Computed example of a mutant assay.
Amino acid sequence: MTQPPALAGAWFITPGHSPARFPAALGSGADVALVDLEDSVPAAVKAQARQDATAFFTSAAGTRPVRGVRISSPTTRDGILDLAAIADYPVRPDLVLIPKAESARDFEITAGALDAPGYTPHLYALIETPRAVEELPSIVRADRIAGVAFGTADYATATGCSKDWEALLHARSALVTSAAAAGIHAIDAPFFDLDDLVALRHESERARDLGFAGKCCVHPRQLPIVTDVFTPTSEQIAAARAIVAAADEAGGRIVRVGEQMVGPPMVKAAQALLARVAARTPSGVSA
């Protein structure tokens, strides 16, 4: 499975019971914008949030940002009600984030409720429990899974660990490894200290270097930093183009580019980088 490059980068989530925030979320510059029907929505207004969220999906599919929804767990009453409501939306989400995912059953339920002729949304697993980390090899091979995202808050609560990078490194590494083995994206958890933008950049860079394809944001001020970290630099783009061009000229043989020897893995990485750039570049604009 090859994950669409458009689903990488900065993700932004906004509460479903606050429709006044929808225009800002959709115009924030995020690569993926999600409306939340789960944890950020109080129980008393969940029904209203399901109705209000229809306004989040007003543009044709395929426009940027990719528009998604985080439902409640499909094994709960709220999740079932979420799915029933979404199935009747005039314009349905491109992406569905499934929280507390722990088995292929979560995808069977979600796809069974939403899939329709001409409509098969990207389904992402939110990995946020110890059991989910243990079951990652089977979860990432579930039918219809498109990617995984990490939820540090619930995971740290369940394990009793801190939310520091070192304490969560094992879970993050497992997530990236399993996702890579299945050929899907892994998206890192939000950074919850809204005022420490230096630490946000540092954690984003570590997540990128570990292999995550993007990171969630919970406040608009976080988006420029996360976008910058996960956007290839002009130097990286030029190097990738040189690698691809040299490989094409060499007919797939190992070739020297600058001071390094370049083989198939480097070429594949360069092609993936250029695909991400193309996905984020408006038509007719040179990167």
Results as ranks from 00 to 15, higher is better:
114 L>D: 04
135 E>W: 12
155 Y>E: 06
111 A>F: 14
267 V>F: 02
161 C>F: 15
218 V>D: 02
87 A>Q: 11
70 R>P: 05
26 L>I: 11
237 I>Y: 01
177 T>D: 05
78 D>V: 00
151 G>A: 03
222 Q>A: 09
126 L>F: 06
11 W>V: 01
192 F>N: 09
81 L>Q: 06
89 Y>I: 13
77 R>S: 13
204 S>Q: 09
23 P>T: 13
39 D>A: 01
60 A>I: 13
33 A>E: 08
52 D>V: 01
79 G>E: 09
281 T>D: 05
236 Q>W: 06
190 P>N: 08
94 D>R: 12
198 V>F: 04
52 D>G: 00
41 V>G: 00
268 K>G: 01
278 A>V: 07
166 E>K: 03
78 D>N: 13
194 L>H: 08
229 V>F: 06
26 L>F: 10
248 D>G: 07
131 R>I: 10
200 L>V: 07
198 V>C: 01
132 A>R: 12
110 T>L: 04
229 V>T: 06
125 A>K: 15
75 T>D: 15
48 Q>H: 05
204 S>I: 07
275 A>P: 05
213 A>Y: 10
246 A>S: 10
25 A>E: 09
223 L>I: 15
187 I>D: 08
147 G>T: 05
57 F>G: 02
26 L>P: 13
249 E>N: 11
255 V>M: 04
148 V>A: 01
236 Q>L: 01
14 T>E: 05
26 L>C: 10
263 G>Y: 12
56 F>P: 03
224 P>M: 12
57 F>V: 06
239 A>Q: 12
42 P>R: 00
105 R>A: 14
41 V>C: 00
254 I>Q: 06
116 A>N: 11
223 L>Y: 11
18 S>W: 15
158 A>M: 15
53 A>Y: 01
232 P>Q: 01
138 S>C: 08
282 P>V: 10
86 I>C: 03
224 P>R: 07
212 F>A: 00
200 L>I: 06
24 A>H: 14
235 E>L: 04
233 T>V: 05
56 F>L: 05
198 V>G: 03
212 F>N: 02
47 A>F: 14
170 H>V: 07
161 C>R: 15
157 T>A: 14
281 T>Y: 12
81 L>R: 06
76 T>Y: 15
286 S>V: 08
228 D>F: 02
169 L>C: 01
239 A>G: 11
201 R>L: 12
138 S>N: 14
110 T>A: 03
154 D>R: 05
22 F>P: 13
112 G>R: 03
235 E>I: 03
277 V>K: 00
247 A>W: 15
208 R>N: 14
177 T>I: 11
136 L>R: 07
72 S>H: 08
132 A>T: 02
184 I>E: 09
265 P>H: 14
141 R>W: 06
227 T>R: 15
95 L>D: 14
55 A>L: 07
57 F>P: 09
279 A>I: 05
280 R>G: 02
228 D>V: 00
41 V>S: 00
66 V>H: 01
92 R>V: 10
235 E>G: 02
245 A>M: 12
59 S>W: 10
94 D>A: 15
60 A>Y: 12
74 P>I: 07
256 R>S: 13
127 I>V: 15
268 K>Y: 02
152 T>G: 08
157 T>M: 09
168 L>N: 00
129 T>L: 06
262 V>T: 10
171 A>C: 04
237 I>R: 09
221 R>M: 12
18 S>C: 14
255 V>F: 11
36 D>R: 03
273 L>M: 11
